[in-house]
Design a protein around this nucleic acid. Structure first.
Length: 262
DNA sequence: ATGTCTCAGGGACTGAGA
């Protein structure tokens, strides 16, 4: 069973890319970010026709998240409890039923603009609230997957030029601490459970021919609850959609979960 | 190289956000 996370940077523009990718990869469930669509205009019909249930939470122009799944979605929740926020960055749902159901949290973390900015402080407040909520979700749902665009490169190895970007937004010590605080709940960064190619990234700036030169960052992650860790067979980044015409600036991350421990 | 892309407002281009 494949699970994926993909920041599509406008679902309106990227719907053809998403549908092609769903047909090729045939994932069981996908969390998408930056839909940039109000709820009334979410394109659920073509997604449904492709074989997926979906739930979504969006707004005009900015943010917006959704979960697609081949199995029914229930217990849908949006936002972080106790953290009022007009920005639509969180959707959670339970995919499937009975013992093998998965709880999926799909998150679009704040970008943070620049270290020391107001948006940066909002990002850190957001992560503190997110961590506290995920701690509760983990107690309630041992089969928890926390995926999305975290807008944090956890370590220097996740950055194309760690010297040039040292201390900058997406790489700064406080952001990396926020990421480690999440892992301290027992979550595992699925990508680092396996040997990976050097310079593996999920996002490349549209400028400076960054993708062609592989000047990227690994900021999209699929984190797994302890109970799911033994089931994880692989974790990888699919850069192929980044090569298409009018691509998203992000590539999807994919994990494969088996039904039982190896 | 303030370099690209998306979106809104308004009806050509600018500004915001990433």
């Amino acid at each position: 069973m494949k699970l994926a996370s993909w920041n599509v940077n406008s679902l309106k523009v990227r719907l053809p890319h998403l549908l092609d990718w769903l047909a090729k990869q045939s994932p069981h469930a996908v969390g998408i970010q930056e839909t940039k669509l109000e709820d009334a205009t979410f394109p659920f019909e073509p997604i449904q026709t492709a074989g997926f249930r979906c739930v979504w939470s969006g707004q005009k122009t900015y943010n917006g998240v959704a979960i697609l799944s081949r199995s029914p979605l229930k217990d849908v929740a949006t936002g972080i409890p106790g953290f009022p926020d007009v920005q639509k960055r969180i959707i959670a749902a339970t995919a499937g039923d009975a013992a093998d159901a998965l709880r999926i949290v799909c998150a679009y973390a704040p970008n943070g603009e620049a270290v020391g900015s107001e948006k940066f402080e909002y990002k850190l407040r957001w992560f503190a609230a997110f961590r506290d909520w995920i701690e509760e979700e983990l107690k309630r749902y041992p089969r928890l997957v926390v995926l999305g665009d975290y807008n944090i490169a956890p370590a220097d190895v996740d950055v194309y030029d760690p010297v040039a970007l040292k201390g900058q937004v997406l790489c700064s010590p406080r952001e990396r601490q926020a990421f480690r605080d999440l892992l301290a709940l027992g979550l595992r960064d699925s990508f680092r459970m396996f040997t990976q190619p050097e310079k593996s990234f999920t996002w490349w700036d549209y400028r400076m021919n960054a993708f062609k030169r592989n000047l990227g960052l690994r900021i999209d992650h699929i984190l797994l609850a302890p109970e799911l860790v033994p089931l994880c067979r692989s974790s990888s980044i699919d850069v192929s959609p980044r090569r298409l015409e009018r691509p998203s600036d992000h590539a999807p991350v994919v994990v494969e979960l088996g039904p039982s421990p190896l």
